[in-house]
Amino acid sequence: MNLKRDVAVQTYSGLGLSALLAITILNIMLHNMPQSVKRAGEKLLEINSQDGVANAVTTVVVYFRGFDTLGEIAVLFIASLGIGLVLSSHSEHHHKVESSFILKTASKLLFPIIILFGIYVMVYGHLSPGGGFQGGVIVASAFLLLLISHQDFELSHSVISAFETLAGVSYVIIGLMGLWILDNFLGNFIPHDISQMGMLVSGGIIPLIYIIVGIKVGSEMSMIVQNLLKRSDNE
């Protein structure tokens, strides 16, 4: 029941095992690299070329393996919930440090630019590198800047949870609509023509889902950051 010792023992044994495995794997890989198996990735790219999304990685992440993405969203959702739960037992007393005038003004100037960039990354996820996960985190980092520089700034819990709920529910609903319309969960039921490849409105549900993922990730990360920041200020 000695927590400190147990954690140390488990961590070190895990590290040791991992090192051993890494050596074994390097050894095996150097001596016989896998021969050319026809990779799933190539086949996925072949299918994507009929699907009308310029960034093939987005198609794989959001559409072909969209079910995994749904699961990852759920993981993030539960993790954010857990952080809120574990930290909620502390008191809400804030220890305020006044930040300098320069920082306050500059962060006000930077905030809209960063938000704009985050939304750009989210919306153009199917055309250029980036997408919901990255864009969401960029938006959250804009809020982080504001939270650090303005001590009295606080995100409204109800607004964030409304965004969160909206995004999560609409992801599952879009999936179920695919099931009802095309008999295929997460089926691409919005018309997507190959001639529109590279335009902003193309690819059917794929950009829509990535924007939803972005909203969800952005609100979860902002909530995590706010919980950690505000609760760690009390002394």
């Binding site: 300098s100 320069i102 920082l103 500059a106 100037l109 930077l110 630019i113």
Partner: peptide
């Protein structure tokens, strides 16, 4: 423009 905004700010902070 972004670098002109952020670089002096971060070093000042």
């Amino acid at each position: 423009a972004f670098i002109l905004l952020t670089n002096p700010l971060s070093s000042s902070v």
